Amino acid sequence: MAHALAANADLVILLARILLMALFLITGWEKLTDFAGTTEYMASTGAPAPALSTAVAIVMEFGVGIALVLGVFTRPLALLMALFTLGTALIGHRYWRLQGPERHANLLNFYKNASITGGLLLLAITGPGRYALWH
């Protein structure tokens, strides 16, 4: 199995880029199409400058998400997205301040973000593979 993956490394890296960005593209689109609602949510989490935070989230999740799927400036954008993802975990999913079901839901989202950050760091090291618009 490992040999088959290695033999098709460029396809596997493309699949990894798509899978890593799928959630960001969905949530980025939701933020883009409900800017006011997202801004309210950002304010409720204590995000600084909620409207600006919303705009940054849209650019990162949707804009950078598309760029990474397409393989454009993959290494620097994957690193930037890793920092963004870790930052959103620390700002938006402070499970240690919560109790009950809300604590558990935020704990899962915090560690989901941490896991995605790990995948993005690997992408920053490996690069986009052969199937990319900009190497």
Rank of each mutant, 00 (worst) to 15 (best):
M1Y: 15
H3S: 14
L5M: 11
A7C: 12
N8D: 06
A9Y: 08
D10T: 06
V12Y: 09
I13D: 10
L15D: 08
A16M: 12
A16V: 09
R17E: 15
R17G: 14
I18S: 05
L20K: 12
L20M: 15
M21Y: 12
A22P: 05
A22W: 11
L25K: 04
L25T: 03
L25A: 07
I26G: 05
I26N: 09
G28C: 02
G28I: 01
G28A: 03
W29H: 03
E30H: 11
K31F: 05
K31Q: 09
L32C: 13
L32M: 14
L32T: 10
L32N: 08
T33F: 11
D34G: 14
D34V: 05
F35I: 07
G37Y: 10
G37R: 12
G37L: 11
G37T: 09
G37V: 09
T39P: 06
E40M: 08
E40C: 01
Y41W: 15
M42F: 10
A43G: 11
A43F: 07
S44Y: 08
T45Q: 13
A47F: 02
P48Q: 01
A49L: 12
A49T: 05
A49E: 01
L52C: 03
L52R: 02
A55Y: 03
A55L: 14
V56S: 10
V56G: 14
M60L: 14
E61F: 04
E61R: 06
F62Q: 04
G63W: 12
G63P: 13
V64T: 08
V64L: 14
G65W: 08
G65E: 10
I66K: 08
L68C: 07
V69I: 14
L70Y: 04
L70D: 06
G71V: 05
F73V: 03
F73R: 10
T74K: 03
T74W: 04
T74E: 03
R75T: 10
P76R: 03
L79C: 12
L79E: 11
M81S: 13
M81T: 15
M81I: 08
L83I: 15
L83K: 10
L86Q: 02
T88W: 00
A89W: 00
L90H: 01
I91P: 00
G92I: 00
H93N: 01
R94H: 02
R94Y: 01
R94T: 03
W96F: 04
W96G: 00
R97V: 01
R97I: 00
L98W: 00
L98E: 07
L98I: 00
P101C: 02
R103D: 00
L107P: 06
N109Y: 01
F110L: 03
K112E: 02
K112M: 02
K112W: 02
S115R: 12
T117S: 10
L121G: 04
L122H: 05
I125C: 09
P128N: 10
L133C: 09
